[in-house]
Design a protein around this nucleic acid. Structure first.
Lengths: 304, 304
DNA sequence: AAATAAAATCAAAAAAATTGATATATTTTA
DNA sequence: TAAAATATATCAATTTTTTTGATTTTATTT
C-alpha cells in the first residue's frame, strides 16, 4: 500500500483544524471519510500520527515531523499543478538546426527569446539537414531549421526565406571587375568540407559549367575560412549570413561573377503529429520571424 | 479534478520506458490502465505531455518540464514514506519541565540525547508543576518532568528520584555548628519568589515550627540567589542540584540544622492515552535515567 | 442526569481505477 | 507486398477504493 496525495491533503487539514468534523466540512466530506483516511494513512506508515486524547486528535511527535516533511512537498505539487494548468511560458524546447543557422542565427534568437520568456529553456542540437530531419521524425527534437529541402510525408515544412551564397575574397586583384567563373578557377579556393550543405549547394550550382576549381584547402568551420580569407586572400563561397559584416566593413568583398546567383531556401520543419503547445507555437513563430528578419537585414546590407 | 500520486508514478514510468506496454508490465497493470492514466493526467493539466508520433509516445516540451518539476518531489515523498515506515529515530519531541529541572538537568539530557540521535529535535517548555500537568493533559507536550506530586486520573506519573532541599550560606559564623531553625531565623534570608515550587516546599516543611524567617529578599532566579549568597552572605534554601558544585568546591556550605530533612519527589509524567512511539519511549527512558543518575551523583557529592 | 459534541466503526453506495476485448495504425518480417 | 507482430486508444464490465449514512462510544457541557 502507498500513501496518496488525498490522504496527505486530508492529514494536513486535520493538522490545521485539529478537528475531524470541521475538516470534513471544509473538504465537503463526511466525518467518517476523514476519520478513515487518517486511519489508513497511519496504517500505511505503521505508526500513529495523532494521539487520541479524550476523543481529540493531538498531533504527536511522529505526526509533527511527518507534517514538516510533507507540507512543503504538498504545496509544491499544488503549485506545479496550477502552474501547468495556467501558464504556457514555461518548459524546455529542443531545437535542431544546421550549421549556418546555428552559427549565425540561433544565438540571437535564443538570446532574445530567453530574455522575453526567462522560464523557457532551449536545447540546441546541431546537425546537417538529413540529421535534423531524422531527429524530427523520431521526435527527438521539437522543431528544426534547415538549409536544404526535404520531401517527407511526416514532415511539415515551411520556407522561411532565401539564403544567398556569395563568392568572396580580400584579394584586391579581384575587386571591381566582372569575371567568368573560368577566369578565376585557378586562384586558390577554400571551401567547407565535403558533406557541408553550403559546399554541396555551391558545387551543384556551378556543375553545369564544368569548371574545375583549384580547391587548395577544405576546412570544417566557416570561421576558419573567414580568417584565412583575410590573411591569405584566397577565394571562397559562403552564405551571405556568414560574411555580411565583413562585406559591410570592407574587409571582404563579393567577387562579381557574371550570372552568378546561387541561393537556397531555409526551412522550418516539425513533425506532422506534433502537439503544438503554446510554448511550441511561440518559439516556432518567434524563430521564423527572427530568421526572416535577419535574412532581409543581411540581404539589404549586401545590396548597399 | 486533482493529480494523484499514482498518475505521477505511472507518468514517470512512461517517461523512463517510453512505452506504455512495458510500463504496464513493470507496474503489473494492463496497457489500457496506463494509457487511460496518462490521458487523465493530461486532461487534468489541460495539456498534452506527449506527442503521439506514429503510435509512439514522445515526451514533448511540456511533459519534459513537468517531469523535471515532479520527479524530485515524487522521490522525496517516497523517501519520506519509507523513512517513516522504517526509522524510529527521527522527529521532534515536546518536553516540559519545571524550573529546577530545566535549569540543572535538561541541558545535559538534551545535549547527550541529541548527540546520540541527531535527527531528533527536542522542544523544551518551562512551567511550574501545575502548568506542565495542564500541558500534558491538553496534549501540548509529549512528556513532563516536574518537582511536585500530581493526582490526576489522566496522568501517568513515575517517581524518578528524591530531590533534597538544603539550607546554604557562605557566612562563616554558621559553619560547623548545629542550629535550631529558630537560632538563625533573624539572619537575612533570600528565597525564590512566591509560587516557586522550591520555596513552597521549603516553607511548607518548616510551617509546623511556626518560625518567622527574616526574608529580606525574594528573587526569581536561582542563579541570582547563588551569586548573592557568595557576595552578601545571606541564607537560602535551594535544591541540592543547584548548589552541589558550590558545596563541593567549598564556596558554599550546608547550614547544619537539627532534624532538617526536606525532600521532594521528581516525577516524569505523560498522558494515559499517549501513543508511545519508539521515539517517545527512547527519550522518556533516556531522560528518566539521566535524571536519576544526576540525582544520585549530586546526592553522593553532598554526602562526602 | 440529560443534552451536546467528537471520533470510531460498519455496511451500503458511489466513484475511481483497472481489466479484457477490440479497433486502429505502424513497423517488421518473410 | 501481404502477413505477422507491435503499440496505442477506446469502451463496457469489473474490481477496488473512497465516501456516505447510520450507529456506537466516550467525554464534555448544561
Amino acid at each position: 500500500m502507498k500513501i496518496s496525495l488525498r490522504q496527505i491533503e486530508i492529514f494536513l487539514n486535520v493538522v490545521k483544524l485539529q478537528n475531524l468534523t470541521n475538516v470534513a466540512k471544509e473538504l465537503g466530506l463526511s466525518q467518517s471519510a476523514v476519520s478513515m483516511s487518517i486511519k489508513e494513512l497511519e496504517t500505511i506508515l505503521g505508526r500513529k500520527l495523532f494521539d487520541r486524547i479524550n476523543k481529540k486528535l493531538i498531533l504527536n511527535e511522529i505526526g509533527r515531523s511527518f507534517k514538516e516533511a510533507v507540507l512543503p512537498l504538498y504545496k509544491q505539487l499544488n503549485d506545479i499543478e496550477t502552474e501547468f494548468q495556467n501558464s504556457e511560458d514555461k518548459g524546455s524546447v529542443r531545437v535542431g538546426a544546421s550549421t549556418t543557422i546555428i552559427d549565425y542565427l540561433m544565438p540571437t534568437i535564443v538570446c532574445e527569446y530567453m530574455s522575453k520568456y526567462p522560464n523557457v529553456k532551449i536545447d540546441l542540437k546541431e546537425g546537417n539537414t538529413k540529421e535534423i530531419v531524422q531527429l524530427v521524425k523520431e521526435g527527438k527534437i521539437d522543431m528544426g531549421f534547415i538549409e536544404g529541402n526535404v520531401e517527407d510525408s511526416e514532415i511539415i515544412k515551411e520556407s522561411i526565406g532565401k539564403d544567398e551564397l556569395v563568392v568572396v575574397s580580400s584579394n584586391e586583384e579581384l575587386k571591381n571587375k566582372e569575371f567568368e567563373l573560368n577566369d578565376i578557377k585557378d586562384y586558390r579556393w577554400v571551401l567547407r568540407e565535403k558533406g557541408s550543405g553550403t559546399r554541396e549547394v555551391f558545387l551543384n550550382y556551378i556543375k553545369p559549367q564544368k569548371v574545375k576549381l583549384n580547391i587548395f584547402l577544405e576546412l570544417g568551420h566557416t570561421e576558419s575560412i573567414k580568417s584565412l580569407l583575410l590573411s591569405k586572400k584566397p577565394i571562397s563561397c559562403l552564405s551571405i549570413l556568414a560574411v555580411s559584416n565583413e562585406i559591410n566593413s570592407g574587409s571582404l568583398f563579393k567577387v562579381n561573377i557574371k550570372d552568378f546567383n546561387c541561393t537556397r531556401d531555409f526551412f522550418a520543419i516539425y513533425h506532422k503529429d506534433k502537439y503544438k503547445s503554446e510554448l511550441f507555437k511561440k518559439l516556432y513563430d518567434f524563430s521564423k520571424e527572427m530568421i526572416q528578419d535577419a535574412m532581409v537585414r543581411k540581404g539589404c546590407i549586401q545590396c548597399s
